[in-house]
Design a protein around this nucleic acid. Sequence first.
RNA 1: GGGUCUGUACCCAAGUGGCCAAAGGGGACUGGCUGUAAACCAGUUGCGCAAGCUUCGGAGGUUCGAAUCCUCCCGGGCCCA
Length: 405
Amino acid sequence: MPTVDEQFAILTAGTVDCIAATELRSKLDSGRPLRVKLGIDPTASDIHLGFAVVLRKLRQFQDLGHVAVLVIGDFTARVGDPTGRSATRPPLTADQVEEHALTYVDQVQRILDFAPGRIEVVRNADWLAQMDMADILKLTARTTVARIMERDDFEKRFRGGDPIALSELLYPLLQGSDSVEVRADIELGGTDQLFNNLMGRQLQTAAGQDPQVVLTTPLLEGLDGVAKMSKSLGNYVGITEPGPEQFGKIMSIPDGLMPKYFELATGWLPGQVSATIEALLSGDLPPVEAKRLLARTVVDLYHGDGAGQNAQDEFDRVFKDRGTPSEIPICEVSETLFPVRLARLLSECSLVESNREGKRKIEQGGVRIEGTKVTDADIEVTAKDMDGKTLQVGKRAWARISVTP
RNA sequence: GGGUCUGUACCCAAGUGGCCAAAGGGGACUGGCUGUAAACCAGUUGCGCAAGCUUCGGAGGUUCGAAUCCUCCCGGGCCCA
């Protein structure tokens, strides 16, 4: 068992805020397993590399003998966390939330330790949905408008004349209540959660509990290199995506983002990360090779050793050598559809969104049959032409036609 | 409650009776270059094979003709109370 100092060093490595360091030390000092809370709003169906950062931190706590308390925000998801939003987000239906919650737990198992005693998974609807008006008034009386409006994004929206639903203002309070409910010793979150997590401390203190320590992890930018990685922006790499998909996505990140990805997405020890970054910056490691290494590492992390190399081979075959992917989704098309305009066939196979878009893509030289570029935008094809043949739109969309009687 | 402004395609935003499927920018997409990076260049960006159809918060109305005018409704900002 590592000493308190060693634990402290491991746990605060790679974090941005630690409120408060002395409290963390004394909690670790107590020697008891600490309850480490992480809230997760089931607003989307995929867990991505950005969220994996904080999950990995939580795993470190588990490995040191502490208990992960995963709070599924099935209630709060219906309010919608306003964090980082410039607009009110539409509330999700109970069904959507439920569906997401299930897939989350499934995905999280790739990172967290689910051994008995190591983790508790709870849902905040269990207590939040029970609250009546008296409870809510009591809760809201614990803070002030001025305090809530200190939050950066509220303030910005308010100043900009953008609408803020009253319910959104309650969000930090609800999340804070979770901390009271689960008696959290520590709460983890991205830096965008700092305000919410501090609210937990305030509420715990008011409830006579020892306030939780708040640790925040950096936010990871998405593939565009600008906005934080998020499902809604579509700039993410999902941890359950197929290896080749992950590999390709990582190859497309801006060069400048590589150090951050090495640091936050590889699961490497700090020494290895800094050595790699140094080699990259000094020119000893060419950028392409660095990125390939990064992509392989991430794929290995989620698909097992060797998967990264396979993904890279596939990548080289398809994109470097302009070849054909090893696995192409089959598109079954009824024989009665033929003869058919190629543009229509493309949309039948979901390679494009409409016949019209299909026609455009052909005009733009982006469509190939068996690797041969199609030049006639109005071309008609027959079942015999197409059966068993591959269709390609752009660099990434593929389908193999299978004609069914 | 009163006043006033406002709601346009993924986002911002022009348009105020026909020349509007709707300027411009961003984003996205396709092609070129390349390292599926960045930068840059060219193009595309409602649906339909087409005639044409549907779209400018919603529902009605005026008109040969409406995103543009009128009525009501819904949503939002600001000021006053």
